Simulated scan of single mutants.
Amino acid sequence: MKRHSILRVTAKFFIPPIMLFALYVQFHGDFGPGGGFQAGVIFAAAVILYALLFGRARTEKVLPLPVLRALAASGVLLYAGVGVVDMLLGGAFLDYSVMAHDPHHGQHYGILLVELGVGMTVFAIMSLIFLSFAGRKR
């Protein structure tokens, strides 16, 4: 893709807004449609676009595979950790209302953290799947 300079410049222009939109979907997910899964897929789409245009090796310099694996595991641990903290605070697993003095605020914090964990995991797994397939020999 080195000969396609217009495509590469256009992608450099669009990748930051794609990532910004993913963050908007991530943090707006507890108020309306959207959330962790959608944000993770959108963020991974930006990484996949980068990898398609600039190559797998350059993408792995920016985002190494061990970092993606750690991010995937951290997202799952965050999701499960919220449930465990809820149980330690006297509630049921993923009963967010015990996370703050006001049950409404507890619900907000819990949903935000769980959706963040989902977003991290989905982004990392989608990116790992693409990079694994991109690195296969024919």
Rank of each mutant, 00 (worst) to 15 (best):
A39H: 08
G135V: 00
L116A: 12
P66T: 06
I111V: 15
A39S: 15
V122F: 06
V118F: 10
V47Q: 04
A92D: 13
V82C: 03
M99S: 08
D86N: 12
Y109M: 13
S5N: 11
V47L: 10
Y50K: 06
E115R: 09
L112T: 12
A39M: 05
H101I: 01
A80G: 07
G117F: 10
F13L: 14
R69F: 12
R8T: 10
M87F: 03
A70Q: 06
Y24M: 13
F54S: 01
K137I: 07
R136G: 04
P66N: 09
G34E: 02
F13H: 02
V76P: 08
V41L: 15
F133H: 13
V25P: 09
Q38T: 04
T121I: 05
L63T: 10
I125M: 04
Y79W: 10
G106P: 06
P64W: 13
D95H: 04
S5A: 11
L112G: 06
G75M: 00
F93I: 04
L20N: 03
Y24H: 12
A80W: 08
G90L: 00
F27C: 08
K12D: 11
L89D: 01
L128H: 04
V25K: 02
A134P: 12
T121C: 08
S74V: 00
K61H: 14
Y109Q: 12
P64S: 11
P17A: 02
S5C: 08
A80Y: 10
S74Q: 00
I125C: 03
Q107N: 12
A22Q: 02
L71R: 00
A51G: 04
V67M: 08
F14I: 08
L78R: 06
A51I: 01
Y50G: 00
V114C: 10
H28D: 15
Q26G: 09
I18N: 05
M19P: 00
H28S: 15
P17C: 00
G135H: 01
A124M: 02
T10V: 14
G29P: 11
F31L: 11
D86I: 01
T121H: 09
G117K: 11
K61A: 14
V114Q: 06
A72T: 04
V62P: 10
L7V: 14
A11P: 05
G90K: 03
V84K: 00
Y96D: 01
L68D: 05
S127T: 09
V98P: 03
Q38I: 05
A51V: 02
V114I: 06
E60L: 10
F27L: 14
Y96T: 01
G135Y: 00
I125S: 02
V122G: 08
Y109I: 15
G29V: 06
A11Q: 08
H4V: 03
V84F: 09
F37Q: 06
S132R: 14
Q38S: 01
F130G: 03
V9H: 10
S132W: 03
R138V: 12
G75I: 05
G35R: 05
K12N: 15
G40S: 07
G90P: 01
Y24T: 11
M87Q: 03
A134W: 08
H104Y: 14
S127P: 04
M120Y: 07
A11E: 12
F130E: 04
K12Q: 13
H108Y: 10
G32H: 14
V47K: 02
R138H: 09
